[in-house]
Computed example of a mutant assay.
Amino acid sequence: MQWLDDHHLDLRALTQTNLEVWLAQAKPSRPRLTAAFIKWTNKRGLTRNLEYPGYQRPAPATFLDDDDQADQLRRCLRDASLPLDIRIAGALIRLYGLPITRIVHLTANQFHEDKTGAYFTFDKNPVLLPPTLARLIEQQITTGRSRAALGPLATSEHPGLLLPGQPASRPRSPEALSGQLMRHGLPTIAARNTALFGMAGELPPIIISDLFGVHRNTATQWAALAQDSWAGYLAALHSEAAGKYE
């Protein structure tokens, strides 16, 4: 924080480049604590999607099996008894591995349609949405306007949030949204881990980073985890097959 003050920077404007410059200059002796602080600021919306370079996170341990993940995604897309915002947030986690801290900051103008389909730009490049999710987001954008009375109207400089809080000009609490998802039987961490693991097995890390805003170091770690798991699976199959012929 002292470094930010010295460089006339606000914490909310801190970029990944700023963080890495500070790391190179300060060379902190307790990286685990600094990494925890960055995680805390990300979680509370004080910073956005920052990664602490060089800090090796523990390997994820909580996952859903494929049937549970598919069943929960199906509920999000098709169960009209669920609240609309819960359906959208749950689908974004299960399809794209988005963290709740980012979901609460998504804005309506990141969504657009053309002759080829409906798209959402999560980071640098637009992502083609499944038609069912596109319809849910369209409905949310339309009905969400009624909440604008609780806060200032959206402008080009301050676009309306996709899942507005109260007042509508402020993002909702990630902790509260996570709790609501859990109460509806839609866990967040396990579902996100499962989605990221699946993507890492199918897409190069740079594509995951550019499409979904996952830091490249994180995307690379997920790719390595998926590769190791796939290699272990093949080794187990080979061992099992060899045993049949002994």
Rank of each mutant, 00 (worst) to 15 (best):
H105E: 12
A70I: 01
P99I: 04
T107M: 10
A89W: 00
L98K: 10
R75P: 06
G97R: 07
L73Y: 06
R87S: 02
R57T: 08
L82P: 02
R57W: 09
T107S: 12
P99W: 03
I100G: 01
L84T: 03
D85P: 00
R102Y: 06
R87Q: 08
D68F: 01
F63V: 05
L98A: 07
A61E: 14
L95P: 01
D79N: 10
L95C: 10
N109A: 04
Q56L: 14
F63L: 06
K115V: 12
G97F: 09
V104F: 04
I86H: 05
D85M: 00
L106F: 08
Q72I: 02
R75T: 06
I88D: 00
R87F: 03
G117R: 09
Q72Y: 11
G117V: 07
Q110E: 12
D67K: 13
P58N: 13
S81Y: 01
P58K: 14
L82V: 05
Y96A: 04
H112E: 14
R87N: 06
D85F: 03
P99Q: 07
P58A: 12
D66C: 02
D79T: 03
P83W: 08
I93W: 01
G90Y: 04
H105D: 11
I93T: 03
D79G: 04
N109R: 13
R57N: 14
D67S: 12
A91G: 05
T116H: 15
L73W: 07
F111R: 08
R57C: 04
D67Q: 15
A80Y: 01
S81R: 13
P60N: 09
E113A: 15
C76E: 03
A89P: 00
I103W: 04
R87G: 00
R102H: 10
R102P: 00
L98S: 07
L98W: 04
A59F: 00
L73K: 08
A59R: 15
R75L: 11
D67Y: 07
G117Y: 07
S81L: 01
T62V: 13
A108E: 15
D65V: 08
A59S: 13
G117C: 08
F111M: 12
L106R: 11
H105N: 10
L64Y: 05
Q72D: 06
D79K: 05
D66N: 11
R78A: 09
D79S: 06
H112D: 13
Q69P: 00
G97I: 03
A61H: 11
Q69S: 12
P58R: 13
Q110Y: 02
R75E: 07
H112F: 15
P83I: 05
D67A: 15
A91Y: 02
A80C: 00
L64D: 10
A61S: 15
R102G: 05
S81D: 14
Q110I: 01
G97D: 09
Q56E: 15
I100Y: 03
K115M: 10
A59I: 09
D67E: 15
L95V: 00
Q69N: 10
L98M: 15
P99N: 09
C76S: 08
N109E: 14
L98N: 08
T107L: 05
